[in-house]
Design a protein around this nucleic acid. Sequence first.
DNA 1: ATGAAAGCGCTAACAC
DNA 2: GTGTTAGCGCTTTCAT
Lengths: 352, 352
Amino acid sequence: MKQKNIRKLTIKDVAEIAKVSKGTVSRVLNKKPGVGDKTRKTIETIIKKLNYSPNLIAQNLASKKTGNIGVIIPHQAEYYLSNPYWPVLLSVITKAAATVGYTILLSTALKEGDIDSAYEFIIKGKRVDGIIAGSELLGEKQLSILYHYNVPFVLIGKSPFVNEYYVDIENRRAMEVLTTHLAVQGFRRILFICGPETFPSVKERVSGFYDALEKASGSTGIVCHTSYDKPEVKEIIQNQKENGFLPDALVVGASDLVLCTLMILRELNMNIPGDIGFASFDTLHMYEYFKPRITAIKQPIKELTKSAFEMLFALIAGKHLIKKSKILPCTLEIGESCREKEIRTIEIETKT
Amino acid sequence: MKQKNIRKLTIKDVAEIAKVSKGTVSRVLNKKPGVGDKTRKTIETIIKKLNYSPNLIAQNLASKKTGNIGVIIPHQAEYYLSNPYWPVLLSVITKAAATVGYTILLSTALKEGDIDSAYEFIIKGKRVDGIIAGSELLGEKQLSILYHYNVPFVLIGKSPFVNEYYVDIENRRAMEVLTTHLAVQGFRRILFICGPETFPSVKERVSGFYDALEKASGSTGIVCHTSYDKPEVKEIIQNQKENGFLPDALVVGASDLVLCTLMILRELNMNIPGDIGFASFDTLHMYEYFKPRITAIKQPIKELTKSAFEMLFALIAGKHLIKKSKILPCTLEIGESCREKEIRTIEIETKT
DNA sequence: ATGAAAGCGCTAACAC
DNA sequence: GTGTTAGCGCTTTCAT
């Protein structure tokens, strides 16, 4: 079975066997017109019989297309794999890309914060025809790299530096709806634990939080930013406790903080929702196994990703896009963790 | 800031500016000898000033090396991302590869079971210098593809069809130790829910399971194979229950079945470890938040991956390997889910 | 130490 | 409809 040193077949071999020129073989390879039916058939048969497949590298070099699209995840693997957002994005985009003959080249931060390497890796040496990147750590420097290399890109999430070619959710609106729900449920002192205030998404969510509280008289809120660092959550909650300042509801704004927060609450002997209400921005797969079921905002990650890919695909094809961005609505998944009896899902209408 | 249509720099541009030949520039690019110190400096300066980086595609074509190593995960993304094994492997290998200038090209089944596409995708068009592949679905067909294209590869997990170049854990031994632990803890009727019996790892574990039971007089066991399908677990447990046949301990042999199994137990109002003992082969990150802490076998995924990469790296370099496989030991993480009081970790010594 | 030139395997423009 | 030819941007002999 073991076959060593088969000199790899080239288009030239196929051409010689078929007694045609390389050009003709190339045409049938790429399903291009200009080949007689019979010739085409013959060549196809030979290709199949030989089990020949063209050298992609050579194709890339000659055609100046790579068939790769780069996905830049601005986090290190340990981190981004621990929450559901990026894995879902990855799997959706891989499939979407495959159906149109594209391949995903993934680039991530090798260590958290080292986002430059991710950009350089994928852009230098031009191995991709276009890029999809998470916007949360996109700074002017990264942007200038993108522009410098003149590669089409679409961002996941808006960025203060870019106003075209991105997809996003209505962070502000979603957080407003969630907060209002908490207020309606009777929670009066809501603690919102969220990510770094430099992230646009976090800013919007905080703004939605305050907007809701303003409208809902009677409830007040506190915002605590974390760098997605677990010990911090513990400190925050303990600080609040020591000050006799304990909130009656908690909103966790990053799904990877949910589990440790729940554990901390258990250590503090606080029951959900009896002693404290609990909700999160973003869901976890395992929520379906939780009791009480956690109330949460669910992002349309799949749709977001599909939209991003479609935009990029059009950009690569050189099409002019009328809609340079796309904003998708979230849903509010109501569980029992905020004293609701009935589990249900509410579509949050898009901002008018 | 937006710069359009910068014709991309080529090695020729650099050569002209430096007033040397392309060959010389190529030599400094690849840090090869045969260039005068001064010339080298000059060229390096120019490269930096121009922010030039060579076209990888062209480099690949000319040098017949890709700098990519292919990772074949024989599952679809939804599946492999839901348990910790593959993500960890992925992140470890990406880093290991990066430190020696290699890049990972990931290929997965587009739909569960469609493993051929994964193989063809990565091998055809020769985009990789070597391959690391999960062995559990490797059949003769895939193997013949591997050999046909004459690409070096290392398997994660042994395969009945291959006896060289793989890394693995001692599945049999680990399961034996876990089962013995259960027997010692006084469990008498142990149900082992595991994956398809065609997987070599599953076979070994089942064998270890029975071996342990044989030695531990008094305890009996039942094995149920699943296709990693959630509803099945429910059926299995319900069947057992209807037959008045309920086990007093459960071992789940796939981490992605753990959560739903736990939920089912809760639905049945069975407490761990009071009503039923519970253990799993493979751990989950979230175990650290669980109470009772789940007893489990922990695989050395990181070390496994590193070993696999090192082997492949050597193979690609054309080195002759003395050790054609590597077997690593697991650990038994004892929690409270099998009526142990004290949480601790036990290294399982490698088979002598 | 450096340059010249011949490919790597393919595509694409232009002939016929 | 098909063949011819000139590259794509680089590496790598082989001269010098």
